[in-house]
Nucleic acid binder design. Structure first.
Lengths: 124, 124
DNA sequence: CAGCATCCACATGGATACTG
DNA sequence: CAGTATCCATGTGGATGCTG
């Protein structure tokens, strides 16, 4: 537990690198879409159906950002009606393990956090 | 790589659990403060000095949220001038490993992401 | 020292309507 | 089918000034 020197990975450059990446990942939909695409390639409407509650606008925006960052590939098939397939790139796939680590922590600790929060509110 | 069924940890309840936690963690300062406190307990001014660029307001807000969620403890010493010590709780400490996993991914892939982003902009 | 209060700028994201 | 366009509500966070 005394290995706090490893946190220099986080604090490193004042947190700039970590934050540059977090900014792209920690919005409302990104991780959900990445996790959904881990099944394999999907088209726009499939994603819209499988990610509950997302609007067309946010799905489009999030996919564009993922494409920009090279985490998701977008292939347009020249057909009528149009067919567009979205899939994770290798870089996108590599995000899954750390994302799972965080999700695991979230699931293990959400009860404790929620309880602590309610106790705090009650105190105030 | 065919173990995509594990991403149900992320998608599980439509991502609600993960997002409930991400919302508390993925703001501008939380992970930076947690990483800084991994060294041991620090007082307000020390934190303000060690986290470059943070304002008093955001330091206060972030610490209050961390205290609410039970990730950071706040102990006031009845002295003059006042002395307040902030430290990670066990729950707070347990966030470090998954945070490091994400930071590691960020550091490994930031160059590729940045390059992809520039290529994308150039294309447009 | 360790904050709280106030004001303000900007980004995120939701709802709705329209299109090649 | 796979988007785009527009409008708008809310949240996040920065600057500044004041206080027990």
């Amino acid at each position: 537990m005394a290995e706090y020197e490893h946190t220099c990975m986080i604090r490193g450059d004042g947190g700039r690198t970590l934050r540059a990446v977090l900014d792209r990942i920690c919005n409302k939909w990104t991780l959900l879409i990445v996790a959904t695409l881990d099944q394999g390639s999907l088209r726009f409407t499939d994603l819209h159906d499988q990610v509950p509650g997302i609007s067309q606008r946010m799905l489009t925006l999030t996919l564009r950002n993922l494409e920009r960052d090279g985490l998701v590939s977008r292939t347009v098939h020249a057909e009528v009606p149009p067919r567009v397939e979205y899939a994770l790139t290798p870089t996108g796939k590599s995000l899954i393990p750390p994302a799972l680590a965080l999700a695991g922590w979230a699931i293990e600790n959400v009860a404790h956090i929620e309880a602590s929060r309610e106790a705090y509110e009650a105190r105030t």
